[in-house]
Computed example of a mutant assay.
Amino acid sequence: MKVPFLSRKGSKIDQPPALIVKSKSREWFDAIIFAFIAATIIRGVLFSAYAIPTGSMEGTLLTGDRLFVSKIAYGPRMPITPVSIPFMESRIGDSKIKTYWDGIQLPYFRLPGFGNVKRGDVVVFNYPSDAGNDPVDMRVHYIKRCLGTPGDVVSIINSNVYINNVLFKNAPKTQTSYLVKTDGNSLNPELLQDLDIEIFQQINMSDYVMIIPPASFENFRNRQNIKTITEISTAQGVYDEAVFPHNSLYKWNQDNFGPLIIPKMGWTVKLTESTMALYRTAIETYENNKVDVSNGNIFINGKKADSYTFKMDYYWMMGDNRHNSEDSRYWGLVPEDHIVGKSMITWWSVDSDAPLLSKVRWSRILKPIN
Rank of each mutant, 00 (worst) to 15 (best):
K264F: 05
T272K: 06
I262A: 07
I262K: 06
P263G: 03
R280V: 12
P259G: 07
I283F: 05
T285I: 11
T285E: 13
P263H: 13
Y279K: 04
A282E: 14
V269P: 01
Y279Q: 10
A282G: 01
M265H: 14
K270A: 13
K270S: 11
N288E: 13
E284D: 11
T285Q: 14
E273P: 00
L271V: 08
T281E: 13
E284W: 05
T285R: 11
W267T: 14
G266D: 08
I262W: 04
N288D: 15
E284P: 06
A282F: 02
T285P: 02
E273A: 14
E273I: 10
P263T: 06
Y279I: 02
K270C: 00
I261N: 10
K264E: 11
R280L: 03
E273C: 02
T268I: 01
Y286R: 07
E273D: 15
M265F: 02
K264R: 13
I261K: 11
G266F: 07
E287S: 09
L271W: 03
Y286V: 04
W267D: 10
L271N: 07
N288F: 14
E287M: 11
N288G: 04
T272Y: 04
T268R: 08
A277N: 05
T281G: 10
I262C: 04
T268N: 09
T272D: 00
M265E: 15
M265Q: 15
W267C: 01
S274M: 06
I261C: 02
I261P: 00
T281N: 13
T285A: 14
P259S: 07
A277M: 09
M265V: 12
E284C: 06
T268K: 11
Y279T: 02
E284R: 12
E273Y: 08
A282H: 06
T285V: 14
L260Y: 13
W267V: 12
Y286F: 15
T281D: 04
T285D: 12
E273M: 12
T275R: 02
Y286T: 01
L278N: 01
Y279V: 04
E273Q: 15
V269R: 00
M265R: 15
V269Q: 07
T285N: 14
Y286D: 13
L278P: 06
Y286G: 05
E287H: 06
S274R: 13
T268C: 03
I262N: 01
E273R: 14
Y279M: 08
L260M: 15
I262L: 09
A277S: 15
T281Y: 12
Y279S: 03
T272G: 03
A277G: 09
L260P: 00
L271T: 05
